[in-house]
Nucleic acid binder design. Sequence first.
DNA 1: TCGTATTTGTACGTATGTATT
DNA 2: AAATACATACGTACAAATACG
Lengths: 246, 246
Amino acid sequence: MDKLIKEKNVKIPLYVTVYETLTQWLKEGKYKPGDKLPGENILAEQFQVSRGTLRQAMLLLQEDGLISNHQGKGNIVLSNQDMQSNGLEKVGNPIVDFCLQPIDKVDTSIGFQPATQKHQQVLKLRPSSIVAVIDITYYSKGHPVGFAMVYMPHEILDKGNVDLEDMDSVYQFYLKLLSSGGLYSNTKLRMSRVRERLSGILNIPEGEAILILEEQLYTEYDIPVLSQKLYMGTDLYELSLRRKSK
Amino acid sequence: MDKLIKEKNVKIPLYVTVYETLTQWLKEGKYKPGDKLPGENILAEQFQVSRGTLRQAMLLLQEDGLISNHQGKGNIVLSNQDMQSNGLEKVGNPIVDFCLQPIDKVDTSIGFQPATQKHQQVLKLRPSSIVAVIDITYYSKGHPVGFAMVYMPHEILDKGNVDLEDMDSVYQFYLKLLSSGGLYSNTKLRMSRVRERLSGILNIPEGEAILILEEQLYTEYDIPVLSQKLYMGTDLYELSLRRKSK
DNA sequence: TCGTATTTGTACGTATGTATT
DNA sequence: AAATACATACGTACAAATACG
């Protein structure tokens, strides 16, 4: 379990390489939106894999929203490939991903405090535990546009071999966590009013509306990794996502 | 294609019934968070299915966030089952689903207009097409809390056998569409300011901030079903969703 | 309209690889 | 080192939806 952030293994399953090839084909336009892909039997033979393996690749393509499968019809290339960007439904860094202006400066600071009762709950900590509080301010063109309050069990930071004196190293660790894979979240999104402290940080008058994203991140092992509150200034953010039917 | 809204077939695949049984077991607490489920071979034998079929059921459980699979370890029951509600990542009716107060009244109206250039694009219509504009106002405790502008190709409504004089019938059709399955969306979420018309409808002063969700819905066949803009009043909404790593 | 061919969906069985305990 | 458990991969067969003559 020492590898919260693990390197990819070199071993790549067959169905993944097939999936990657097919993705490439679609990107190249070898098959265009509306086209029917060759039948699964044919493709399987072309790739020299069994049909089952090929179907695993198809499933990945479908999850990406690249194709649509239908019994009797075939596998059809879909047209909405523009929206391939990382939507909100994927774990990432919304403050950076969805800002309408490029983030060009980041300011990080870190502190430590005993776990509050809420932290004990959502981060599954003991009362004696220490929680790292990472504050991150995001700037665009010299102005603050977003702010993050990240709560992380000290243990996690500890295992990450982070230099707590080097703020850049702390921020990089945070980014690496977010992109490390195998994470999922409980996320809540709402609007609220800017209050005292935030008003100073984001340079927004008190009482103004602001977008708040609050979430807990867990590993695939169900281990809490962090809890964070993200503040995004109005008018500067547009969150995109892909929704699917149940 | 006449069945944009289709009834479920009676035929239920084996792996789905297995999945449903397992879901039931977890709900009943037969296996608790942190527990390891019996091995796949054992479960397969219990259900009298092949291991492959059982694994299809496991995949569904995993997608629901109910279990986590790990090679060599087993299938572990996860703890975050509270958040089983329909998150924003699933197609639904956010104005109703995420309002902190219960919606107790809905006011629907409908009109028709030629497809604008934008509609022609996102709804894939010809210039001569007619678009239905459905306006829906949502009330809670006598006050308007949300507003929807739904644009739908006339064709879709037509196939739905909707009584255009009966506003309740129109709204029910809209709801049925949203829950009909096999849909996906391109969704954008942002904050904006209340302007003239909306100010009157939602009874909010002009210039106030408001949450806007704008999206296009498509069928699994890549056919545009509707384009809509949802307005949700501040402080009254909290959108929850589940994010996953790529 | 009705078969028939095509194509994907479901299900089984088997074997081997790889991670964890 | 060995046992256990999930992951990958192959092959086969039939069912069900669709397309087409």
